[in-house]
Design a protein around this nucleic acid. Structure first.
Lengths: 233, 233
DNA sequence: GGATGTGAAGTCGTTCACAGCT
DNA sequence: AGCTGTGAACGACTTCACATCC
């Protein structure tokens, strides 16, 4: 239903057989909300709800109803006036928009506490995000503590094998859980291996070339944020 | 140094021994950047840099120089015209603003994979965030896997002891790492125990009363975001 | 009738540009 | 002379309000 082409500023795509044109950049906040809508719709699907209005969905996600409609409007028309949205269809459409309808294959680099945590934490991830490789500078040192927890253990490989293995296992997302001093080096390796998406847990700014995408998760930043709010409210 | 003014919402502030008044709401993005500045300043302090201009700091944090000055301006005047900022002083001032100059005592609730990961992950946290308690519904089941990794193990307690222990250990931040179905229940327990800050890893919306603060960390949302960017660039 | 889709208005955050100190 | 601090311009995102269509 929704077939998309495209890039940066201009952007064409299909919805229900109609080609639409947008020259609009989509706010990142919109994408985050889409993810939230997706989660809500999943719950609704499970409880058997078939139709939902923007107001209902908005209430559940704690946002404004117009916001829901605007967010969706960036990508096409998904509702029926006077009725609402079909839960199942909307859910599918949103998954297509986000690209979360496909399986994403990930590698974790840096198997210290956090890295091994993520390996064993995989039940927290949605089904479509799979960890299929683990790298470290010293694979020997860490094998014990990783494999103990996993039903199907992921073998820890030396980072020198990154490029080869990335290709072989079709890795698209690299997760950096090394100390900050190593983060840029690992990034460069991932870039060389053409792993286009990077999720960076190391508390330092990393730089990626055009065409690659990096997202940071800085626990410290989040905690500082909490600390600020607690200190000032 | 000196102070001024005005608008929106009240709040008082204390820097360099001077009480400041602001009636302005501070953007959350500003707080996040402050945290980033803080990290950079820490590095500079270590490498012995003494003075920094807004342009230099901005370059390092990849933001606009005017942005740096504006962010700081919400809280006072910290620089010297024609010179710049003293690294050490600015760092201290920012830590005071964020409230990250004090020690924050945290409890982790839900000692599954992620929870136990956080317990052992503590070296990733900055020094001033300390995990001083761990709770679960079934403390027996998890003792083994937690204590093995810790030099000084944190004993896992039954959640029924939350209120008592929170008071005793002066816990100010609760970290929720339970399955989503339990998240609101745990939140209510934390609220009852007067733990005012909540960091929620369970992928579901939780509701806290006035006066409490909750921040979400949804891995799925972040990954969906990456997936979107990878699919559309 | 009722809910969507959307221009227009409003709000919030960022960047510019320069006055004001040092 | 140089860099901060800040009003004003700008741009981005959100909300309103209503025309549109089922």
């Amino acid at each position: 239903m929704t077939k998309k082409l495209e890039f940066n500023k201009f952007f064409t795509y299909f919805v229900k057989g109609v080609t639409k044109l947008k020259y609009q950049k989509i706010p990142e906040a919109t994408i985050r909300r889409l993810s939230r809508y997706s989660r809500c719709l999943e719950e609704m699907e499970q409880t058997g709800e078939e139709v939902v209005s923007s107001a209902q969905l908005a209430g559940r996600c704690m946002v404004n109803a117009a916001q829901v409609r605007k967010d969706l409007a960036y990508f096409g028309e998904f509702g029926i006036r006077g009725v609402g949205y079909y839960v199942k269809d909307l859910h599918n459409d949103i998954k297509k928009i986000l690209g979360s309808n496909k399986e994403w294959r990930m590698a974790v680099v840096g198997i210290g506490n956090l890295g091994s945590a993520l390996l064993s934490y995989k039940d927290f991830l949605k089904q479509n995000y799979k960890i299929v490789a683990a790298f470290d500078i010293d694979p020997q040192k860490v094998i014990g503590r990783v494999s103990e927890k996993l039903g199907k253990p992921v073998e820890v490989l030396h980072i020198s094998r990154m490029k080869e293995v990335a290709k072989e296992r079709k890795i698209e997302i690299g997760v950096i859980t090394t100390p900050p001093s190593e983060a840029q080096g690992v990034t460069d390796l991932l870039v060389e291996a053409e792993v286009r998406g990077i999720l960076n847990f190391a508390p330092t700014q990393i730089i990626v070339p055009e065409g690659f995408v990096a997202k940071d998760v800085f626990f410290t930043t989040i905690l500082d944020n909490l600390a600020y709010l607690l200190s000032n409210n």
